[in-house]
Design a protein around this nucleic acid. Structure first.
Lengths: 205, 205
DNA sequence: TCCTTTTGTAAGCGGTGCTCACATATACGA
DNA sequence: TCGTATATGTGAGCACCGCTTACAAAAGGA
Protein backbone atom coordinates (compact mmCIF):
# COMPACT_ATOMS: atom_id res chain seq x y z
CA UNK A 1 0.00 0.00 0.00
CA UNK A 2 1.29 3.40 -0.92
CA UNK A 3 -0.65 5.10 1.86
CA UNK A 4 1.34 7.86 3.48
CA UNK A 5 0.27 6.99 7.01
CA UNK A 6 -3.18 6.82 8.51
CA UNK A 7 -3.79 10.52 8.67
CA UNK A 8 -7.27 11.86 8.22
CA UNK A 9 -6.01 14.01 5.40
CA UNK A 10 -4.39 11.95 2.76
CA UNK A 11 -1.85 14.35 1.35
CA UNK A 12 -2.17 13.51 -2.32
CA UNK A 13 -5.46 11.80 -2.84
CA UNK A 14 -5.90 12.73 -6.52
CA UNK A 15 -2.58 11.16 -7.39
CA UNK A 16 -3.27 8.14 -5.22
CA UNK A 17 -6.64 7.63 -6.89
CA UNK A 18 -5.08 7.74 -10.34
CA UNK A 19 -2.43 5.23 -9.26
CA UNK A 20 -5.11 3.01 -7.70
CA UNK A 21 -7.14 3.16 -10.89
CA UNK A 22 -4.12 2.25 -13.01
CA UNK A 23 -3.32 -0.73 -10.80
CA UNK A 24 -6.93 -1.90 -11.00
CA UNK A 25 -6.66 -1.72 -14.77
CA UNK A 26 -3.46 -3.73 -14.62
CA UNK A 27 -5.03 -6.49 -12.59
CA UNK A 28 -8.44 -6.78 -14.16
CA UNK A 29 -10.40 -5.43 -17.07
CA UNK A 30 -11.56 -1.88 -17.52
CA UNK A 31 -14.97 -3.06 -16.37
CA UNK A 32 -13.60 -3.57 -12.86
CA UNK A 33 -12.70 0.08 -12.56
CA UNK A 34 -15.18 2.09 -10.53
CA UNK A 35 -14.81 5.21 -8.45
CA UNK A 36 -15.65 3.21 -5.35
CA UNK A 37 -13.06 0.57 -6.15
CA UNK A 38 -10.38 3.21 -6.62
CA UNK A 39 -11.42 4.80 -3.33
CA UNK A 40 -11.23 1.46 -1.54
CA UNK A 41 -7.77 0.80 -2.92
CA UNK A 42 -6.64 4.25 -1.85
CA UNK A 43 -7.98 3.50 1.62
CA UNK A 44 -10.54 6.24 1.59
CA UNK A 45 -14.32 6.52 1.84
CA UNK A 46 -16.56 6.22 -1.19
CA UNK A 47 -17.42 9.89 -1.29
CA UNK A 48 -13.89 11.23 -1.00
CA UNK A 49 -12.93 11.04 -4.69
CA UNK A 50 -15.64 13.53 -5.54
CA UNK A 51 -13.77 16.21 -3.62
CA UNK A 52 -11.14 16.05 -6.37
CA UNK A 53 -12.92 14.69 -9.43
CA UNK A 54 -16.31 16.05 -10.37
CA UNK A 55 -17.39 12.76 -11.87
CA UNK A 56 -16.24 9.31 -12.76
CA UNK A 57 -15.45 10.61 -16.24
CA UNK A 58 -13.17 13.26 -14.79
CA UNK A 59 -11.24 10.59 -12.92
CA UNK A 60 -11.02 8.52 -16.07
CA UNK A 61 -9.69 11.52 -17.95
CA UNK A 62 -6.92 11.93 -15.36
CA UNK A 63 -6.12 8.24 -15.57
CA UNK A 64 -6.05 8.46 -19.36
CA UNK A 65 -3.71 11.45 -19.12
CA UNK A 66 -1.21 9.46 -17.10
CA UNK A 67 -1.56 6.42 -19.37
CA UNK A 68 -1.02 8.58 -22.43
CA UNK A 69 2.05 10.12 -20.84
CA UNK A 70 3.48 6.64 -20.37
CA UNK A 71 2.65 5.78 -23.97
CA UNK A 72 4.45 8.88 -25.20
CA UNK A 73 7.49 8.13 -23.06
CA UNK A 74 7.50 4.57 -24.37
CA UNK A 75 7.38 5.83 -27.93
CA UNK A 76 10.13 8.36 -27.34
CA UNK A 77 12.38 5.70 -25.89
CA UNK A 78 11.68 3.31 -28.73
CA UNK A 79 12.24 5.90 -31.44
CA UNK A 80 15.38 7.36 -29.89
CA UNK A 81 17.43 4.77 -31.71
CA UNK A 82 15.45 4.94 -34.97
CA UNK A 83 18.06 6.91 -36.84
CA UNK A 84 17.63 10.02 -38.93
CA UNK A 85 15.60 8.76 -41.85
CA UNK A 86 12.16 10.37 -41.41
CA UNK A 87 10.21 7.51 -42.92
CA UNK A 88 12.02 5.04 -40.66
CA UNK A 89 11.14 7.29 -37.72
CA UNK A 90 7.53 7.38 -38.84
CA UNK A 91 7.44 3.61 -38.98
CA UNK A 92 9.19 3.30 -35.63
CA UNK A 93 6.54 5.49 -34.02
CA UNK A 94 3.81 3.24 -35.37
CA UNK A 95 5.55 0.06 -34.27
CA UNK A 96 6.20 1.46 -30.81
CA UNK A 97 2.60 2.58 -30.53
CA UNK A 98 1.39 -0.92 -31.38
CA UNK A 99 3.86 -2.56 -29.05
CA UNK A 100 2.74 -0.40 -26.16
CA UNK A 101 -0.95 -0.89 -26.92
CA UNK A 102 -0.53 -4.66 -27.07
CA UNK A 103 1.50 -4.72 -23.86
CA UNK A 104 -0.95 -2.46 -22.00
CA UNK A 105 -4.38 -3.23 -23.43
CA UNK A 106 -6.45 -1.90 -20.55
CA UNK A 107 -4.44 1.31 -20.33
CA UNK A 108 -4.84 1.74 -24.07
CA UNK A 109 -8.55 1.16 -23.75
CA UNK A 110 -8.82 4.03 -21.31
CA UNK A 111 -6.79 6.30 -23.57
CA UNK A 112 -9.06 5.75 -26.51
CA UNK A 113 -12.34 5.97 -24.65
CA UNK A 114 -14.90 8.01 -26.44
CA UNK A 115 -15.22 11.65 -25.59
CA UNK A 116 -12.56 11.83 -22.90
CA UNK A 117 -10.49 14.21 -24.99
CA UNK A 118 -13.32 16.69 -25.20
CA UNK A 119 -13.76 17.12 -21.47
CA UNK A 120 -12.97 20.58 -20.15
CA UNK A 121 -11.01 19.09 -17.27
CA UNK A 122 -8.87 16.88 -19.50
CA UNK A 123 -6.13 19.43 -19.99
CA UNK A 124 -3.27 17.02 -19.36
CA UNK A 125 -4.80 14.47 -21.69
CA UNK A 126 -5.00 16.98 -24.51
CA UNK A 127 -1.44 18.13 -24.03
CA UNK A 128 -0.09 14.60 -24.17
CA UNK A 129 -2.19 13.83 -27.20
CA UNK A 130 -0.98 16.96 -28.91
CA UNK A 131 2.66 16.01 -28.36
CA UNK A 132 2.07 12.61 -29.87
CA UNK A 133 0.34 14.00 -32.92
CA UNK A 134 3.07 16.56 -33.38
CA UNK A 135 5.84 13.97 -33.36
CA UNK A 136 4.01 11.84 -35.90
CA UNK A 137 3.14 14.73 -38.14
CA UNK A 138 6.69 16.02 -38.00
CA UNK A 139 8.17 12.71 -39.12
CA UNK A 140 5.77 12.46 -42.02
CA UNK A 141 6.26 16.03 -43.17
CA UNK A 142 10.00 15.55 -43.00
CA UNK A 143 9.66 12.50 -45.20
CA UNK A 144 7.50 14.42 -47.64
CA UNK A 145 9.95 17.31 -47.64
CA UNK A 146 12.79 14.94 -48.41
CA UNK A 147 10.85 13.51 -51.33
CA UNK A 148 10.62 10.12 -49.73
CA UNK A 149 6.91 9.54 -50.25
CA UNK A 150 4.88 9.03 -53.36
CA UNK A 151 1.79 11.14 -52.90
CA UNK A 152 1.71 14.83 -52.16
CA UNK A 153 -1.50 14.41 -50.18
CA UNK A 154 0.23 14.37 -46.82
CA UNK A 155 -2.97 15.03 -44.90
CA UNK A 156 -4.64 11.92 -46.29
CA UNK A 157 -1.57 9.85 -45.53
CA UNK A 158 -1.54 11.22 -42.02
CA UNK A 159 -5.15 10.24 -41.47
CA UNK A 160 -4.78 6.88 -43.15
CA UNK A 161 -1.65 6.05 -41.17
CA UNK A 162 -3.24 7.13 -37.94
CA UNK A 163 -6.43 5.15 -38.65
CA UNK A 164 -4.43 2.10 -39.67
CA UNK A 165 -2.40 2.00 -36.48
CA UNK A 166 -5.40 2.85 -34.33
CA UNK A 167 -7.46 0.21 -36.08
CA UNK A 168 -4.75 -2.42 -35.68
CA UNK A 169 -4.61 -1.69 -31.96
CA UNK A 170 -8.36 -1.60 -31.46
CA UNK A 171 -8.91 -4.76 -33.45
CA UNK A 172 -6.83 -6.54 -30.87
CA UNK A 173 -8.68 -4.88 -28.01
CA UNK A 174 -12.03 -5.73 -29.49
CA UNK A 175 -11.01 -9.29 -30.23
CA UNK A 176 -11.38 -9.11 -34.00
CA UNK A 177 -8.14 -10.73 -35.10
CA UNK A 178 -9.21 -14.39 -34.82
CA UNK A 179 -12.18 -13.64 -37.07
CA UNK A 180 -9.88 -12.35 -39.76
CA UNK A 181 -7.84 -15.50 -39.76
CA UNK A 182 -4.97 -14.25 -37.66
CA UNK A 183 -3.39 -16.74 -35.28
CA UNK A 184 -3.67 -15.30 -31.73
CA UNK A 185 0.04 -15.89 -31.27
CA UNK A 186 0.82 -14.05 -34.49
CA UNK A 187 -1.11 -10.85 -33.89
CA UNK A 188 1.98 -8.74 -33.31
CA UNK A 189 3.79 -9.75 -36.51
CA UNK A 190 0.55 -9.53 -38.48
CA UNK A 191 -0.06 -6.00 -37.28
CA UNK A 192 3.55 -5.00 -37.85
CA UNK A 193 3.38 -6.54 -41.31
CA UNK A 194 0.27 -4.58 -42.17
CA UNK A 195 1.93 -1.37 -41.03
CA UNK A 196 5.11 -2.07 -43.04
CA UNK A 197 3.01 -2.82 -46.08
CA UNK A 198 1.37 0.56 -45.74
CA UNK A 199 4.68 2.35 -45.37
CA UNK A 200 6.11 0.54 -48.37
CA UNK A 201 3.07 1.47 -50.41
CA UNK A 202 3.46 5.19 -49.75
CA UNK A 203 7.25 5.18 -50.26
CA UNK A 204 8.54 6.69 -53.48
CA UNK A 205 10.03 4.00 -55.67
CA UNK B 1 -45.74 0.56 -29.25
CA UNK B 2 -45.31 -2.75 -30.95
CA UNK B 3 -46.89 -4.64 -28.09
CA UNK B 4 -49.05 -7.48 -29.32
CA UNK B 5 -51.86 -6.85 -26.87
CA UNK B 6 -51.78 -6.83 -23.10
CA UNK B 7 -51.49 -10.53 -22.68
CA UNK B 8 -49.53 -11.95 -19.79
CA UNK B 9 -47.40 -13.85 -22.23
CA UNK B 10 -45.79 -11.55 -24.68
CA UNK B 11 -45.48 -13.79 -27.72
CA UNK B 12 -42.07 -12.67 -28.93
CA UNK B 13 -40.28 -11.05 -26.05
CA UNK B 14 -36.73 -11.77 -27.26
CA UNK B 15 -37.43 -10.01 -30.53
CA UNK B 16 -39.24 -7.17 -28.81
CA UNK B 17 -36.33 -6.66 -26.43
CA UNK B 18 -33.85 -6.48 -29.30
CA UNK B 19 -36.06 -3.97 -31.09
CA UNK B 20 -36.46 -1.96 -27.90
CA UNK B 21 -32.71 -1.94 -27.40
CA UNK B 22 -32.10 -0.80 -30.98
CA UNK B 23 -34.58 2.05 -30.61
CA UNK B 24 -32.93 3.11 -27.35
CA UNK B 25 -29.62 3.20 -29.18
CA UNK B 26 -31.20 5.30 -31.91
CA UNK B 27 -32.50 7.87 -29.47
CA UNK B 28 -29.64 8.16 -27.02
CA UNK B 29 -26.14 6.95 -26.54
CA UNK B 30 -25.06 3.41 -25.89
CA UNK B 31 -24.73 4.37 -22.22
CA UNK B 32 -28.52 4.70 -21.98
CA UNK B 33 -28.99 1.07 -22.89
CA UNK B 34 -29.71 -1.14 -19.90
CA UNK B 35 -31.59 -4.38 -19.55
CA UNK B 36 -34.14 -2.64 -17.37
CA UNK B 37 -34.62 0.15 -19.90
CA UNK B 38 -35.21 -2.38 -22.68
CA UNK B 39 -37.67 -4.22 -20.43
CA UNK B 40 -39.54 -0.99 -19.67
CA UNK B 41 -39.78 -0.15 -23.34
CA UNK B 42 -41.07 -3.64 -24.12
CA UNK B 43 -43.68 -3.17 -21.38
CA UNK B 44 -42.41 -5.98 -19.25
CA UNK B 45 -41.03 -6.40 -15.74
CA UNK B 46 -37.36 -5.99 -14.92
CA UNK B 47 -36.75 -9.69 -14.44
CA UNK B 48 -38.45 -10.89 -17.60
CA UNK B 49 -35.52 -10.40 -20.01
CA UNK B 50 -33.46 -12.92 -18.06
CA UNK B 51 -35.85 -15.67 -19.09
CA UNK B 52 -34.52 -15.23 -22.62
CA UNK B 53 -31.05 -13.72 -22.23
CA UNK B 54 -28.72 -15.11 -19.62
CA UNK B 55 -27.05 -11.77 -19.08
CA UNK B 56 -26.87 -8.23 -20.29
CA UNK B 57 -24.00 -9.27 -22.54
CA UNK B 58 -26.14 -11.94 -24.15
CA UNK B 59 -28.78 -9.34 -24.96
CA UNK B 60 -26.11 -7.05 -26.36
CA UNK B 61 -24.84 -9.88 -28.52
CA UNK B 62 -28.32 -10.38 -29.97
CA UNK B 63 -28.64 -6.65 -30.58
CA UNK B 64 -25.24 -6.62 -32.23
CA UNK B 65 -26.29 -9.54 -34.42
CA UNK B 66 -29.26 -7.62 -35.72
CA UNK B 67 -27.21 -4.44 -36.19
CA UNK B 68 -24.55 -6.38 -38.07
CA UNK B 69 -27.22 -7.92 -40.28
CA UNK B 70 -28.41 -4.43 -41.17
CA UNK B 71 -24.85 -3.36 -41.89
CA UNK B 72 -24.35 -6.31 -44.20
CA UNK B 73 -27.62 -5.61 -46.02
CA UNK B 74 -26.61 -1.97 -46.35
CA UNK B 75 -23.28 -2.98 -47.83
CA UNK B 76 -24.86 -5.46 -50.20
CA UNK B 77 -27.26 -2.81 -51.48
CA UNK B 78 -24.49 -0.28 -51.90
CA UNK B 79 -22.19 -2.67 -53.70
CA UNK B 80 -24.85 -4.14 -55.97
CA UNK B 81 -24.16 -1.36 -58.47
CA UNK B 82 -20.40 -1.39 -58.05
CA UNK B 83 -19.75 -3.18 -61.31
CA UNK B 84 -17.52 -6.15 -61.98
CA UNK B 85 -14.07 -4.78 -61.30
CA UNK B 86 -12.95 -6.53 -58.09
CA UNK B 87 -10.86 -3.65 -56.81
CA UNK B 88 -13.77 -1.28 -57.35
CA UNK B 89 -15.97 -3.71 -55.45
CA UNK B 90 -13.43 -3.86 -52.64
CA UNK B 91 -13.41 -0.09 -52.41
CA UNK B 92 -17.20 0.07 -52.56
CA UNK B 93 -17.44 -2.30 -49.61
CA UNK B 94 -15.15 -0.08 -47.58
CA UNK B 95 -17.00 3.10 -48.49
CA UNK B 96 -20.36 1.50 -47.72
CA UNK B 97 -19.03 0.25 -44.41
CA UNK B 98 -17.89 3.73 -43.46
CA UNK B 99 -21.11 5.33 -44.63
CA UNK B 100 -23.16 2.95 -42.52
CA UNK B 101 -20.96 3.36 -39.47
CA UNK B 102 -21.13 7.14 -39.71
CA UNK B 103 -24.90 7.07 -40.19
CA UNK B 104 -25.47 4.62 -37.32
CA UNK B 105 -22.77 5.34 -34.77
CA UNK B 106 -24.46 3.77 -31.77
CA UNK B 107 -25.35 0.63 -33.69
CA UNK B 108 -21.79 0.42 -34.91
CA UNK B 109 -20.52 0.85 -31.38
CA UNK B 110 -22.51 -2.19 -30.28
CA UNK B 111 -21.20 -4.21 -33.19
CA UNK B 112 -17.60 -3.54 -32.34
CA UNK B 113 -17.91 -4.02 -28.60
CA UNK B 114 -15.09 -6.02 -27.12
CA UNK B 115 -15.58 -9.73 -26.69
CA UNK B 116 -19.12 -9.97 -27.99
CA UNK B 117 -18.00 -12.14 -30.89
CA UNK B 118 -16.49 -14.69 -28.54
CA UNK B 119 -19.65 -15.38 -26.59
CA UNK B 120 -21.01 -18.88 -26.98
CA UNK B 121 -24.52 -17.56 -27.44
CA UNK B 122 -23.53 -15.10 -30.18
CA UNK B 123 -24.15 -17.53 -33.01
CA UNK B 124 -26.03 -15.06 -35.21
CA UNK B 125 -23.39 -12.45 -34.67
CA UNK B 126 -20.64 -14.76 -35.79
CA UNK B 127 -22.53 -15.82 -38.88
CA UNK B 128 -23.13 -12.26 -39.97
CA UNK B 129 -19.53 -11.36 -39.31
CA UNK B 130 -18.37 -14.34 -41.32
CA UNK B 131 -20.45 -13.31 -44.31
CA UNK B 132 -19.00 -9.84 -44.23
CA UNK B 133 -15.45 -11.11 -44.03
CA UNK B 134 -16.09 -13.54 -46.84
CA UNK B 135 -17.39 -10.84 -49.17
CA UNK B 136 -14.41 -8.62 -48.47
CA UNK B 137 -11.90 -11.40 -48.82
CA UNK B 138 -13.49 -12.57 -52.05
CA UNK B 139 -13.24 -9.15 -53.66
CA UNK B 140 -9.60 -8.80 -52.69
CA UNK B 141 -8.63 -12.28 -53.82
CA UNK B 142 -10.39 -11.68 -57.12
CA UNK B 143 -8.38 -8.52 -57.55
CA UNK B 144 -5.18 -10.37 -56.74
CA UNK B 145 -6.09 -13.16 -59.12
CA UNK B 146 -6.70 -10.67 -61.89
CA UNK B 147 -3.30 -9.13 -61.27
CA UNK B 148 -4.76 -5.83 -60.20
CA UNK B 149 -2.77 -5.35 -57.03
CA UNK B 150 0.91 -4.73 -56.48
CA UNK B 151 1.87 -6.98 -53.61
CA UNK B 152 1.39 -10.71 -53.44
CA UNK B 153 0.95 -10.52 -49.68
CA UNK B 154 -2.83 -10.62 -49.82
CA UNK B 155 -3.17 -11.51 -46.16
CA UNK B 156 -1.34 -8.38 -45.05
CA UNK B 157 -3.42 -6.25 -47.39
CA UNK B 158 -6.55 -7.83 -46.02
CA UNK B 159 -5.57 -7.02 -42.46
CA UNK B 160 -4.33 -3.56 -43.31
CA UNK B 161 -7.49 -2.74 -45.25
CA UNK B 162 -9.67 -4.05 -42.51
CA UNK B 163 -7.76 -2.17 -39.82
CA UNK B 164 -7.81 1.01 -41.87
CA UNK B 165 -11.57 1.00 -42.34
CA UNK B 166 -12.21 -0.09 -38.78
CA UNK B 167 -9.85 2.57 -37.50
CA UNK B 168 -11.46 5.28 -39.62
CA UNK B 169 -14.86 4.33 -38.23
CA UNK B 170 -13.72 4.06 -34.62
CA UNK B 171 -11.80 7.31 -34.79
CA UNK B 172 -15.08 9.01 -35.46
CA UNK B 173 -16.84 7.12 -32.69
CA UNK B 174 -14.10 7.93 -30.23
CA UNK B 175 -13.99 11.56 -31.26
CA UNK B 176 -10.42 11.58 -32.50
CA UNK B 177 -10.84 13.39 -35.81
CA UNK B 178 -10.75 16.97 -34.52
CA UNK B 179 -7.44 16.25 -32.80
CA UNK B 180 -5.94 15.20 -36.08
CA UNK B 181 -6.92 18.41 -37.76
CA UNK B 182 -10.00 17.15 -39.55
CA UNK B 183 -12.90 19.57 -39.81
CA UNK B 184 -15.93 17.90 -38.16
CA UNK B 185 -17.96 18.62 -41.28
CA UNK B 186 -15.31 16.99 -43.46
CA UNK B 187 -14.92 13.69 -41.65
CA UNK B 188 -16.68 11.69 -44.34
CA UNK B 189 -14.60 12.95 -47.26
CA UNK B 190 -11.43 12.71 -45.19
CA UNK B 191 -12.12 9.09 -44.34
CA UNK B 192 -13.10 8.27 -47.89
CA UNK B 193 -9.96 10.02 -49.09
CA UNK B 194 -7.79 7.98 -46.78
CA UNK B 195 -9.40 4.78 -48.00
CA UNK B 196 -8.95 5.72 -51.66
CA UNK B 197 -5.34 6.59 -51.02
CA UNK B 198 -4.84 3.12 -49.59
CA UNK B 199 -6.51 1.43 -52.54
CA UNK B 200 -4.46 3.48 -55.00
CA UNK B 201 -1.29 2.55 -53.17
CA UNK B 202 -1.92 -1.19 -53.46
CA UNK B 203 -3.07 -1.01 -57.08
CA UNK B 204 -0.64 -2.29 -59.70
CA UNK B 205 0.55 0.57 -61.87
C1' DT C 1 -5.46 31.55 19.63
C1' DC C 2 -9.63 31.56 16.87
C1' DC C 3 -11.76 31.06 12.76
C1' DT C 4 -12.04 29.97 7.88
C1' DT C 5 -11.12 26.74 4.34
C1' DT C 6 -10.04 22.33 2.81
C1' DT C 7 -10.56 17.58 2.96
C1' DG C 8 -12.45 13.27 4.56
C1' DT C 9 -16.70 10.43 6.58
C1' DA C 10 -21.19 8.14 6.75
C1' DA C 11 -25.57 7.78 5.39
C1' DG C 12 -28.59 7.74 1.75
C1' DC C 13 -30.96 8.27 -3.11
C1' DG C 14 -32.05 6.29 -7.36
C1' DG C 15 -30.11 3.42 -10.66
C1' DT C 16 -27.99 -1.05 -12.27
C1' DG C 17 -27.41 -6.49 -13.24
C1' DC C 18 -29.16 -10.46 -11.57
C1' DT C 19 -31.75 -14.12 -8.58
C1' DC C 20 -35.60 -16.40 -6.73
C1' DA C 21 -40.08 -17.67 -4.91
C1' DC C 22 -44.32 -17.22 -6.85
C1' DA C 23 -48.18 -16.49 -10.24
C1' DT C 24 -50.03 -17.24 -14.64
C1' DA C 25 -50.76 -18.86 -19.24
C1' DT C 26 -50.03 -22.33 -22.73
C1' DA C 27 -49.21 -27.17 -24.56
C1' DC C 28 -50.17 -31.76 -24.53
C1' DG C 29 -51.39 -36.45 -23.06
C1' DA C 30 -55.27 -39.11 -20.95
C1' DT D 1 -62.63 -32.07 -21.96
C1' DC D 2 -59.81 -32.15 -18.28
C1' DG D 3 -55.43 -32.02 -15.66
C1' DT D 4 -51.06 -31.31 -15.24
C1' DA D 5 -46.25 -30.27 -16.78
C1' DT D 6 -43.79 -26.65 -18.74
C1' DA D 7 -42.82 -22.13 -20.35
C1' DT D 8 -43.03 -17.45 -19.29
C1' DG D 9 -43.75 -13.08 -16.63
C1' DT D 10 -44.00 -10.74 -11.74
C1' DG D 11 -42.19 -8.41 -7.82
C1' DA D 12 -39.35 -8.25 -4.04
C1' DG D 13 -34.71 -8.16 -2.87
C1' DC D 14 -29.37 -8.40 -2.98
C1' DA D 15 -25.06 -6.16 -3.82
C1' DC D 16 -23.04 -2.72 -6.30
C1' DC D 17 -22.78 1.62 -8.81
C1' DG D 18 -22.35 7.18 -9.38
C1' DC D 19 -23.27 10.93 -6.85
C1' DT D 20 -25.07 14.19 -3.00
C1' DT D 21 -25.30 16.02 1.51
C1' DA D 22 -24.84 16.94 6.45
C1' DC D 23 -21.33 16.64 9.41
C1' DA D 24 -16.47 16.09 11.49
C1' DA D 25 -11.68 16.69 11.47
C1' DA D 26 -7.40 18.72 10.09
C1' DA D 27 -4.63 22.66 8.18
C1' DG D 28 -3.42 27.30 7.81
C1' DG D 29 -3.67 32.30 8.17
C1' DA D 30 -5.16 36.50 11.16
Amino acid sequence: MAKSGDKYHHGNLPGALVQAALSILDEGGAADLSVRAAARRAGVSSGAPFRHFASREALLAAVAGEALRRLRVGIEEATASAGEDPLARYEAIGIAYLAWAFANPTHFEIISTRGLLDREDAQGLREENGKLIEATEQALRDAAGAGRIESRDVQSILIAGRALVYGLARMRLDGHYPRWGVDPDAVDPAAAGALRLFIESIRRR
